[in-house]
Design a protein around this nucleic acid. Sequence first.
RNA 1: CCGCCCUUAGCUCAGACUGGUAGAGCAGUCGACUGUAGAUCGACUUGUCCCCCGUUCAAAUCGGGGAGGGCGGACCA
Length: 345
Amino acid sequence: MDTAERTELVTRFTEEVVEVDEIEALFEERENPTAYIGYAPTGEMHIGHFTTMRKLADFIDAGLDVTVLVADLHAHLDDAKSPFELLEARSAYYEAAIVGMIEAAGADPDSVTFVRGTEYQLEEPYTLDLYRMLAETTLSRAKRAGSEVVRQSENPKLGGLVYTLMQALDVAALDADIAYGGIDQRGIYMLAREQLPDSGYDKPACVFAPLLSGLSGGKMSASEASSKVNLTDDDDAVEEKINGAYCPAGEVEDNGVLEYLRFLVFPVFEERGEQFVVERPEEYGGDLVYDDYEAVEEDFVSGELHPADLKPAAAAAISAVIAPVREQLLDNPELLEDAYPEKYA
RNA sequence: CCGCCCUUAGCUCAGACUGGUAGAGCAGUCGACUGUAGAUCGACUUGUCCCCCGUUCAAAUCGGGGAGGGCGGACCA
């Protein structure tokens, strides 16, 4: 694979890349540049995570050495979203779910390195770097960098600011050439690009995934159950949520159903060699088969494909995509019971 | 250590002065209309009024104690 192909793999289906030149340069210089993505083990993982995760398959195919950080300390630093006592259990659950998603996306989880935050964030070199950064960063700069990531409240805690600086530092600590995450992470990684060179580290390139629209229109909200599909949702639950989704005929904007197809279903189906089939009553023209997303969107915009026909097909496809992960999680019920005792135990 | 403020539906809050077993908006649920959903109408649901004790025929409301949260002051050898 040449540099152009590898770069294309790394950058496809993304929201933004900073900068493409830098990624090309990495591939020119080295056989296996490094990339990292971090997740703070807080609430249950959902389809948004899966969409972001699917991209790791592209990274691996492109020859990147991928590290996944399970940022346990971050999960508590962000307004104590995860109680301190549950960090271990939630980290275990996240790691298992992530392995499942990578597998379901058609990649080999063994080619990914998993790291816990507490494995290195309490060591002296990291701590010293952090303290130096704390001394050099203004409150307003840190607030701005983390504003899309850290929970915003009337009474913000210091932890949210430390969280932000730690994440910037993680890029260097994990020796990542490329920082990857949802576009909401942009502020933090721009801070990293700005500050890491001052501390003697390389400036990371960044790849940002799009954030999917919520099913009820507008942004996906972690706290709104009907706005997203959970990894543990069964076929019926997925169908119910997709059927209830905001999906105006012919409109692409804010259309979560189409976005799920574009960024999750089609990439995964391509990997698995499956086709997207829309079963449709003869009355409306009979069944349709699609090999790529563009054709779906074209038919949807033209009116050829009606939302009422698309929805059941999309629901079935999404179920098929998440099924392996769901089964894996249900086979190990203690993972969820330990991680979210108030809900499952 | 001292003082002041806050705590009522899933969320934001009203009600407290002048005790009479609780309300609005949003959210949610269900119908109507659409070959989906949304929008729009129509209907409906929701409570340990932070906890304990007391006063009273009667306490979200008054008194005392406590918990949690916030703000300020003081202390600064």
